[in-house]
């Protein structure tokens, strides 16, 4: 790769970044994933979606999971949430095995999953009241969470009156209101336009700084992963396995300007190498790959758009 000649290695960390990672790793482990397997039974036989996944996250860590399509990112996060069951291995949350969904793990989905029949405020109150909190206390807390995401003015609005970005902000507030130990996010900004997505990323970092929350964030957007994450877990597909766990050398606090810094570009080059090199190897297996056929010219010679 030519780019690597001029860029520093992604493994090079400034002193500040190294110290930060040392502090991070000294914190207690929130989530431990040990030898996780997931095998789907299909009519054509068994499909191994995840194979022997190991990783752990520490308190207040921001972990991004990236990988080519079909690497089982979504399956992984659904297992962490307890929505799917693994076929082997363990998921431990603060040392206790995860069994089924629970309020200790909040989740934000890619699609909009706000309850359309509830106002924004009632949506945020939902987790609190199903867990037995009284209405008034739940309402008070919900309003605080809405203030945190800057949507207190929309407390009485219905979800269909909100934009996509606002809906996802409410979904984040709804998940956080339960005060989970960990927030699982499955490509939460995937359906948003580029501008909104950038705002949401900055907003999420802001929230993460302010409260005691560990985040596991799935994305296929490499810039997003580097911008947000402390560490990036890179998976490969067929079967889904851990390829590398990258410590992002970009210093905190993160800013948009860092997108062109050397550390950022070096990390991105490494991620691209891991993911695209792999995809090229798998060419044809992936439905997104498309070989352009020789296209006949359908306009007159000389009638050129270049």
């Amino acid at each position: 790769m030519n780019a690597e000649k001029t860029l520093p290695s992604y493994l090079e960390q400034s002193d500040a970044v190294r110290e930060r990672f040392e502090r991070l790793k000294a914190r207690p482990k929130i989530l431990e994933v040990k030898g996780l397997d997931k095998v789907f039974e299909t009519p054509k036989g068994q499909t191994v979606a995840l194979k022997d996944i190991h990783f752990e996250t520490h308190r207040r860590e921001f972990l991004c999971v990236v990988g080519p399509s079909g690497c089982g990112k979504s399956t992984l996060i659904r297992i962490l949430a307890g929505l799917d069951a693994q076929t082997g291995g363990d998921v431990l949350l603060e040392g206790k095995p995860v069994k089924g969904p629970g309020r200790d793990r909040g989740m934000v989905f890619q699609g909009y999953t706000l309850f359309p029949w509830l106002s924004v405020k009632r949506n945020v109150m939902f987790g609190l009241t199903v867990n037995g909190m009284g209405f008034q206390e739940a309402e008070r807390q919900a309003l605080q969470w809405l203030a945190l995401i800057g949507l207190e003015k929309f407390a009485e609005a219905y979800p269909h009156q909100l934009s996509g970005g606002m809906k996802q902000r409410v979904a984040i507030a709804r998940a956080l209101a339960n005060q989970p130990r960990i927030l699982l996010m499955d490509e939460p900004f995937g359906a948003l336009d580029a501008q909104t997505r950038a705002k949401m990323q900055a907003h999420l970092l802001e929230i993460w700084r302010k409260i005691d929350i560990t985040i596991v964030f799935i994305t296929h957007d490499l810039d997003e992963a580097i911008y947000l994450a402390d560490r990036v877990l890179v998976l490969k597909a067929h079967p889904g396995e851990v390829q590398e766990l990258i410590e992002v050398p970009v210093p905190h606090p993160r800013k948009m300007e860092q997108f062109i810094s050397d550390e950022f570009l070096a990390t991105k080059a490494r991620l691209e190498e891991l993911i695209y090199a792999y995809e090229e190897k798998e060419e044809g297996a992936d439905e997104d790959e498309y070989d352009y056929p020789d296209m006949p010219r359908l306009v007159e010679v000389g009638d050129s758009v270049d």
Binding site: P101, G106, F126, A175
Partner: peptide, 15 residues
């Protein structure tokens, strides 16, 4: 009914 809504409710701790 959209299954994502019931899943969201499950992750929020609904019985």
């Amino acid at each position: 009914l959209d299954g994502a809504l019931t899943e969201a409710a499950l992750t929020l701790g609904a019985g």
